[in-house]
Design a binder for these strands. Sequence first.
RNA 1: GCGUGAGUAGCUCAGCAGGAUAGAGCGUCCCUCUCCUAAAGGGAAGGUCGCGGGUUCGAAUCCCGCCUCGCGCACCA
Length: 552
Amino acid sequence: MTPEELSAAIATCLQDAIASGELSVPAEAVPRQLRVDRPKSRDHGDWATSIALQLAKPAGLPPRKIAEALSSRLAGIAGVAKVDIAGPGFLNITLDASAAGGLAQVIVQAGVAFGTNDSMAGRKINLEFVSANPTGPIHLGGTRWAAVGDSLARIFQSQGGDVTREYYFNDHGNQIDRFARSLLASAMGLPAPEDGYGGVYIEDIKDRVLAVEPAILDLAEAEAQERFRAVGVDLMFGDIKESLHNFGVSFDVFFHEDSLHQDGAVEALLEQLKKSDNLYFHDGAWWLKSTDYGDDKDRVVIKSDGNAAYIAGDIGYFANKRARGFDLNIIMLGADHHGYVARLKAAAAALGDDPDTIEVMIGQMVNLLKDGAPLRMSKRAGNVVTLEDLVDIVGTDAARYSLARFSSDSNIDIDLDVLTKRSNENPVFYVQYAHARTAAVARNAAAAGVDRSGFDAGALNHPTESELLAVLGQYPGVLAQSAQFREPHRVARHLEVIAGAYHRWYDACRVAPVGDEEITDLNRTRLWLNDAVGQVLANGLGLLGVSAPDRM
RNA sequence: GCGUGAGUAGCUCAGCAGGAUAGAGCGUCCCUCUCCUAAAGGGAAGGUCGCGGGUUCGAAUCCCGCCUCGCGCACCA
């Protein structure tokens, strides 16, 4: 029995109590989702609910009275062995060992489907992340989003969501010109332009452009710069796509900002905004009245030089996504872009659309520590640490896991020295090891002749088994919450909890018989549990894009 | 100044649609392999949950104020 199933059963009991007139609670006071928690102390049963305390005020009754009204009904739920009223009115529920143990079989039979759900079915979700400019390699901030964004996409899919992973290439505007000029300067042996880019990767791209077009420097300067732009940006695109692919992230759409300008989409939308009186002309530029829609200040959409400002592309891009049918557009941005949120939503509102179809996730910075001191990074100076650097140092699994296990809201410090040690300070090893251990136990069980031909749910009654079953049962709920709050780190953290419970169980309970002991249903049932743990760990690691090795 | 994120154990961080004695990993100190992977497990030490008010039967969690730190506040993208 999972906590969700128990919760649903308790909700039914509550409805019964209300219907029978025993309890009088205003409908709006009844929580839609009735929570059951795992108590910290084993003396408080397997699961507990504080529903009686929550309903005391709206029902106008002492909480213990409510608890009493509910406890006899809860005791009647199939699989519930005992219900106690404790403290101010907690309801502590103890399950039959057989009801709790049945979960092991349920999980094995569900396989990869265990934990999945259809709560997001029918939702067409566009998940835009990384979107690093094609003027350099993916830096650490982008790497964090690659790990978090791809995991979130997988989690949405596990909940039935229809997800499109999308990468927006800002290949329009003068940063690309700066990139081209930087390549040209490098090829001519000049220092990087004042507003340009430097560093080894510029040298590298320059060399590769020259390899493709050896005569490029014989062209007139403007023409040479254009060739550097065209070929250089292409090479950069290729590098970025390859890095992401090697990182296990497959984007469905690489969207080029330039295409919005090429096909006239942006121009048409700006005309529409002019007609709807959402744009005005001032100081030689066209401004969006974004303050009418909650922004701090109005924003220039067409600069006085006649060129489209950056937000013009965003307006076109949003309209494009909506035209493609996405009802939820999640955009992941770094903390240095959080000022965008208001203007993006304002732009949506100005178009007459629903700003709530846009959700912006802001990820805080990743700081690197080297020799215990913060490492300052600058793309211009060229001392960036890239996705590839990180993968070279710690590998894809550790990189993805260590970035995904933190809340995006917190700044994280990654100590290169620690990660270079490849010690088990990285929890990914702890979780992967637990998975490898389940595989080893299964191999040994098979060699000893233990199979899953028998199952006695009631036999899983050791304290470590009760704990292990409980945390396995929480997995679907953790997944659902992870999707709801867009927080993949909840999955990672719960895997660590499961791994810990598994290691403790392993220490206390054997699957394979010792020596020539007779094989019983206890051995077989424990094999079910062992395999269930392996399944859940593999499912969870899969959602994080991390491998689940059978041997380590 | 305004906006925004953070402040929880020595370190890195969970927990925050309020719940019973605040957690994990690492680090420190003990202990456990004749027994399926000791890359593990058990135990100990270690906390005014930034500070001050408020709401509540109950606050790390919600509200208000303050302090400190990160990030942002362009006709750059």
